[in-house]
Simulated assay, not measured.
Amino acid sequence: MADTHSETSSQLSSPGDHGSVDSGFVSPNASTVSLPRISLTQPHIKHLNKQLENLHPMDILRFCKIFFPNLYQSTAFGLTGLVTVDMLSKLDAESGTPQPIDLIFLDTLYHFKETYELVDRVRERYNVKVHVFKPADVDDVAQFEALYGEKLYDMSAELYDWIAKVEPLQRAYLDLKVAAVLTGRRRSQGGQRGDISVIELDDERGVIKINPLANWSFGQVKAYIDENKVPYNALLDRGYKSVGDWHSTVPVGEGEDERAGRWKGQDKTECGIHNKQSRYAQLLEQAALQQQQQTA
């Protein structure tokens, strides 16, 4: 899997050095002024969502490619994200002047081997650039566990989410100067996603989030995958409908929600990158403020 990691973007200093936190909130010791923010008022966002709500995802993507600068797609290569990748490739083909949207992939180091294999297949099929971001200062599980111990995901789920997912995503936004990002979230996935809009302002992270398939069902997504022969994770055929880290993902039972296999038995439905500021992030913020006061 060397190729999967060959385009890993450069990493900043460790989390403790620059004060980034779980939700994307940045402490007084850091700055997000380099982010090319897009100024949209809430009434403007409401108007855009009203216009986009009933459009086909392809039309939503057409609009987004024109309207949003520094547009990227953040994906864990789930079915919805794969549909988006395929649709974007079709838009490039019809335009005659391809302007591909780069992908952002958070390599937690704990993905299934089938996921890493899929990353390579997608890169080859669509000739798309994949920016891979790992936990800061580590390259593999051995290094990660040497720093944080074994099974951090069980010992401190919030700390794990921040180190493995949220901080790398915040770093990706900063390094790539992301202004807007396409996600694979859909309302039919349930949980906190049940009432998402097509366009959202993530004011904590300083980016616009776009959910082009927000109103599609799992059946619609799977039908598109099949009809267009889009490569997908081999785990789907083994009962997985949503795939994350191997330590927190199990097959979905008959009649269960699509994401029921994620963090099964735990009181959570999101890993942190789509949540507001976590308790761990708040502690980091408080520590940074205390340190600033002591040195003032």
Rank of each mutant, 00 (worst) to 15 (best):
A281Y: 01
F68W: 09
V122P: 02
G24I: 00
Y153T: 08
D154E: 15
V21R: 00
E94S: 11
G194W: 06
E167F: 02
L284E: 09
D107R: 07
G239D: 08
N211F: 08
L52R: 05
V122D: 01
N215K: 14
A281M: 04
Q73S: 15
T183A: 03
Y110N: 11
Y153C: 09
I196M: 10
D257Q: 14
L82P: 10
S31W: 02
D203K: 14
A288D: 13
I163H: 04
T41G: 11
V207R: 00
L71Y: 03
F133P: 00
A93T: 12
Q170H: 08
E227V: 09
V122R: 03
D245S: 12
F112M: 06
A164C: 15
I60C: 06
V178A: 02
F105V: 04
M1N: 13
Q220A: 12
I104S: 01
K50H: 08
T269Y: 09
K276S: 06
G206I: 00
E145C: 10
S13M: 11
G265V: 12
G19L: 11
H131R: 04
V128N: 01
Q282Y: 03
L61Y: 10
L236T: 14
L35E: 02
W162G: 01
S39E: 15
A287R: 13
R187L: 05
Y280K: 07
N29K: 15
V132L: 07
R238T: 13
N70C: 04
P135E: 11
D154F: 10
V122E: 01
I210K: 01
T295E: 13
K264G: 12
L118I: 13
A76W: 05
R205K: 15
A180S: 13
T80C: 08
S6K: 14
F25W: 07
F105D: 01
M87H: 04
P212S: 11
P98T: 11
Q277I: 09
R238L: 15
T115M: 07
H247L: 08
H18M: 04
K151D: 14
I208V: 14
H247G: 04
S217G: 06
Q189N: 15
L289H: 08
L174R: 05
R121W: 01
V178N: 00
T32I: 11
F105L: 02
G96E: 04
A180K: 05
S14N: 14
T80L: 02
I210A: 02
R62H: 09
A180E: 05
Y160P: 02
I210F: 02
L55A: 09
N233H: 15
S10A: 12
G190R: 11
V85G: 08
T295P: 01
